[in-house]
Each structure stands twice: as C-alpha cells, then as structure tokens.
Amino acid sequence: MINWTKAIVRPSTAILDAIKVINDASTQICFVLDEQERLIGTITDGDIRRGILARINLDRPVTDIMNSSPTVLSEHQERSRAKILMQERQQSRIPIVTDDGKLIDVISLEDFTDIPAKETSVVILAGGLGMRLRPLTETIPKPMVPVAGRPIMEHLLENLRNQGFRNISIAVNYLSHVIEDYFGDGSRFGLNISYIREEDKLGTCGALWLLDRRPVEPMLVMNGDLLTRVNMQSLLDFHADQGAEITVGAVEHITEIPFGVLNAEGVQLKSLIEKPKLSHMVNAGIYVLNPSVLQMLDGSKMDMTDLIEMSLNKNGLVSVFAIHEYWRDIGRAGDLKLAEEEIEGLG
C-alpha cells in the first residue's frame, strides 16, 4: 500500500517541489488539494515528463501541469470498481473522494495483486575499464565499486527485481570474473542472470550482437554504473506509445556560467545576465531498443551513439524519455561520495 498522505501538494507548490514529493513518497503521483482538502488535480510521472520535455519552468506552480479532471472513485462505490477503472484508464492509482470532493484514500494496483514477473529482456553493460575511477578500478570493475556497502550494480539489479524484471544479461569484459563470481546465475538475488562475454572491446552496444537469444519484444539496455529509481515500466509504456524504434532516457543537466554574460551588438552592450544557468537534456545511459535495431549490428565495435545516429539516418523514430526520478552516474570519485549520502536517504 502507498502512503498517499506524503504525496499531497498545494496549488501554489512549485513543480520542482512536487517532483521531490513524488520521488520521496515513491507514489508515481501526487495530489493537489485546496485549503478545504478537496482534490482539484493530480500530477503523475507522465505529466512531469511532458512538462520537462516542453522546457517548462520548474519553479512554476503545479497547476500549470496538473490534470484538473482526474479519474476518481466515490466513497459510496465498491472499491473493487477501482481495479476496473485502472485497467480501463491504464492507471495505477485511483483517489477516493467524498461527496464534496475531499480526498480520503487512494487505491493502488498493488492492493489487488503482487507485481508479476516481467518477460522483458534487460541487458546491463558492464565491460568498461572505469579509467576515471582509478585506482579503485585497478582491481575491480566499475560496476562492482561499493556504494553503501554494496556494489553499484547490486543496487541497480535490486531495483529491477523490485519492479518485476527477472531476466538479466550482463555484458562483461574487464575483470569479468569479479562480476560473475559475485552474481553467479542470479538465483540468490531472485534473478535469472546470464553473461555476454566480450573477447574484444565492442563499444557500448556492440556486445548486443552476442546475445544468445534475440528478443521478440522491446528490450531494456542500461549502463552498469548507474544508481536510479526510474520506473522502467513507465519507460517501456512510453516507448510503445510513441511507436519508437529507440527510446533514450534523459536527465536535465544544469550548467552555471560563473560570470556575467554580455549580449552585445558590435561594441554596444544590449543586456547583461549575471551567472546564467543553462539547461540541457543529457543521455542517462538507459535505453529501450526494438529487436529490429539489432539488425544494424555486425559484430564489430559500435557505441550506442553510433547506433542511434544510424537509426536517425534511416528515418527511424528515436524518442526521448524525461527522467525525474533519482538518477546518478558514477563517473568520478566525487560522484561516489554524493551517491553514498543519497542512497542512504532513499532506503
């Protein structure tokens, strides 16, 4: 059951604060209540992702992106009706309201059933040298660097398992025995783990050529040095809704210029912006690939960026999935320190 009382915001709440509420409460939704505790709207993962991609100012109030006509259940209706509504509307949360619109409870899909095991194939890319984390990675591969007492990749795999994903292939090369000795066949982690063994370095996606079984449905592919709480089913659903060939997970990266920026025409100053912040959507190292994409591989070295460009060049549809949940790439030693603090807070 979800603790919906932690997912309440007010109409004046900033979108950025609502994102934090959703992530902290792990509800995938928050509820906008007025001063009389009446439900006036909801904000879901999808609402936030659409807002981020539309480059909406996250300091704006939640009323700018909320659904002001959410599907609700009356307190007088049978609660079993909620399951039907969730199936019809493809929702996982249904608010229950009184006759005067006050929110009194929330029914979750998890209230009716355990999360079933998913057949989706997942590939974890874990063959890199981890040069930026030397000397830590001289004796262990980067995905095995410990965060809060456990390897980075164990946190990643635990999150996948908790979301119902069981079938995991791990692409290994550098110090592969360390990974294989620790995770084995995955049974002690509640997973089915197999290994893609690169004899030569094949880049960030070339190892997919070596898959024993080619998937018949879209597959998840992600870097093995990530810590994240991304809702992978939402990502897969988005991919299907877009009809995409490839979907790229993206996070917002803010760059602050530590100087005043001059906007000049010739020698005449028109305006000055003090220490502006630039926002870009950057690659999060999480992808969904259609099986047909694998036909572009030929066993030679290829990076994911090359595969994406090949898809674009043949007019393939590549979509962008905005990630607002917790995400951290462990690229440098400083990231490890931050991750230690953050992962403890996530529980």
Rank of each mutant, 00 (worst) to 15 (best):
K270L: 14
A18T: 00
V62P: 00
N57A: 15
G347R: 11
T13A: 08
R38C: 09
E274V: 10
G127D: 14
A250H: 04
I19M: 14
L317T: 12
P61M: 00
I29A: 12
R328L: 13
V221T: 01
D100E: 11
P141A: 03
S292F: 00
L129C: 06
M281H: 12
S292Q: 10
R166F: 09
V72A: 02
Q87T: 13
I15M: 05
S187W: 05
Q90G: 10
L278A: 11
N315I: 05
S311H: 01
F189R: 07
T42N: 07
Q233W: 08
P146K: 11
A18I: 00
S169V: 07
G190M: 06
L208K: 01
D34N: 15
E256Y: 04
I8A: 03
L156D: 07
V147N: 03
V178Q: 01
T139W: 01
Y326M: 10
L103R: 03
Q242N: 10
S80Q: 11
I104E: 07
E265G: 11
L58R: 05
T13N: 04
D34P: 09
A339Y: 05
I29P: 06
I2P: 04
T204K: 02
E88P: 03
S292C: 00
G190Y: 05
N192Y: 03
L175F: 09
P291Y: 01
R89K: 15
K83A: 14
V32M: 06
Q233K: 10
Y195G: 01
E309S: 13
N290W: 01
M296V: 03
N67V: 04
A82R: 07
R214V: 14
K142N: 06
Q295R: 14
W4G: 11
P151F: 03
L85M: 15
G243E: 03
L346I: 13
A171K: 04
E158F: 10
E341N: 11
R38S: 09
E217L: 10
L175R: 14
D100Y: 06
Y287N: 02
R166S: 13
Q268M: 12
E78T: 09
R49P: 00
M153R: 02
E252R: 13
T27W: 10
A18G: 07
E198M: 15
L73F: 04
N231C: 12
G347S: 12
I246A: 04
A82N: 06
P95I: 01
L235G: 00
E199Q: 11
P11I: 04
S311W: 00
